[in-house]
Design a protein around this nucleic acid. Structure first.
Length: 247
DNA sequence: TTCCAGGGAGTAT
DNA sequence: ATACTCCATGGA
């Protein structure tokens, strides 16, 4: 393996190369759908992003397409992140807490954040002021840490689950977005009452109670590595529908 | 042009 | 608790 500007310890930790993928695959292989997803994307891992970066990124990611999210985060970094030279090219690091907490609402909106600008600003100020302690989360269980994160403006159940999964390594977290909702309705509907399935298929979004129900299913059905199931199923379904559009 | 996006918060029942 | 509504922007 080859990389520049990082040592092996960092790479191992960031890409969670310490996770026992073989074990996780055995634990998750409960049905044909997850087996197909595991097979198609075998090797995919849950990253360990810095919590701050992960938090802001997923606050920005609400109700936005992936392509638009990339643009938003790129602009945020270009505008507020420290410039880094690597292999003769200019890059920008993700903005620090201090820098974002001092940004103006207009500047943030200029990065295409829209109504998320105020959430990013308020959360940045809380984190920067020390009113929120990321390290404290590591000492909490899943439910408690999730509640603590949800105190932050712009952080609901889904964003909280993403932070717990992609930065704190709580692999039992099972974020439910529109894609995961579709996946559950499509492949796992027999685990729910028909009325619930029909209600969810008719509406675009879903309530907090509905979220907890879908999230609870994922954690109970897939177990301690539910987050890995989410990751594989998410990419499986996205690629499958992308292929479908071509034909 | 219209539609929808890796949701969350505010408000009225 | 639950239902309904608005949110600001950009890619397809």
């Amino acid at each position: 393996m080859e990389f520049v500007g990082a040592d092996e310890t960092f790479i191992t930790r960031y890409f969670s190369l310490d996770h026992d993928l073989q074990l996780i695959g055995r634990e998750l292989g409960k049905d044909v759908h997850i087996k197909a997803a595991l097979s198609d994307f075998w090797g995919l891992r849950i990253v360990r992003q810095p919590p701050w970066e992960c938090l802001i990124s997923f606050i920005c990611a609400t109700y936005k397409s992936v392509a638009a999210i990339r643009q938003m985060l790129l602009k945020l970094s270009e505008k507020f992140g420290e410039k880094v030279m690597l292999e003769g090219c200019d890059f920008h690091a993700f903005p620090t807490q201090e820098r974002l907490s001092k940004a103006s609402l207009r500047e943030l909106e200029g990065c295409g954040l829209g109504y998320r600008a105020k959430y990013v600003l308020e959360t940045s100020r809380l984190v920067c002021a020390g009113s929120f302690d990321f390290d404290g989360l590591r000492r909490m269980g899943y439910a408690e840490a999730k509640d603590a994160l949800r105190e932050l403006p712009g952080v609901g159940a889904k964003v909280a689950d993403c932070v717990l999964l992609f930065s704190l390594g709580m692999l039992e977290a099972f974020p439910v977005d529109v894609w995961v909702k579709r996946i559950i309705l499509k492949y796992y509907s027999e685990h729910f009452p028909a009325g619930f399935v029909e209600k969810l298929s008719c509406q675009k979004g879903f309530s907090d109670a509905d979220y907890e129900r879908l999230n609870g299913f994922g954690r109970k059905y897939f177990g301690a590595y539910a987050g890995y199931a989410q990751e594989y199923l998410y990419h499986y379904e996205r690629l499958r529908t992308a292929k479908l559009k071509k034909d």
